[in-house]
Amino acid sequence: MKYAMLIDQTKCIGCGACTVECKGKYEASFGVLRTRMIRYESGSYPHVKAAFRKQACMHCKVAACEEICPVKAIYRVEGENGGMVVVDKETCIGCGTCASACPFGVPQVDPGDKKMEKCSFCAHRVVNGSSTYCAEACPVGAIAFGEREALLAQGEERVKALKSAGRSKAALYGKDDTGVLLVIDGDPESLGLVKEGFTLSAAGWEAISSYGGLAVAAALGGLGYRLICDRLEEVKKEKE
């Protein structure tokens, strides 16, 4: 994985600047957001903690959406088994299988063009040496984008600093699993994140896939086999 995004939850004010900047740059229906802001709470009054999480594609090392897509519409822009996970809209049939497989609940099917919509890491900008829109917009500098190695080091350093300031639960999330690295202060669950180590290895996926991706889709997401077949038929008709 060449690139990464480092999001520092201990800096995020939850304002939504990233959301509007992103939304204004990509075509999608009203309300379909590639990145959104969610407020999480833990504890009960008066011992409550709150944090904001920028919820968007995590660009997993081994991405469930990529593996499970019945038409292989999800692919990587560059890098072996890493890099940016993007959707080929021409190929996408909008069946939503990816949405049900994603451990973070990220992909959405745009009701307008019936295509899956999610963060692309601004791949078209990144390949030309630019950063992502959200990282450039964040007023408090809570989002950084760049070479993964450098950001890993930056994240670790930040965690160390937080720990030495007495925040013992500070941690770097996603070191082994995702393209998005999160500096968090508390359990991953308190931010609606799955426990680390959630991704199957590439080999694991291969084994599952060899029994047919659709069965896996059905099993993982509860999305019926029938539904996908219907959608494929529909698409076929549309294209004719």
Binding site: P70, V71, K72, E90, T91, I93, G212, G213, L214, I228, C229, L232, E233, V235, K236, K239, E240
Partner: peptide
């Protein structure tokens, strides 16, 4: 694009 989609569909079905 259509051919790819149809091909993939056939394969999966």
């Amino acid at each position: 694009g259509a051919a790819v989609a149809a091909g993939a569909a056939g394969n999966f079905l």
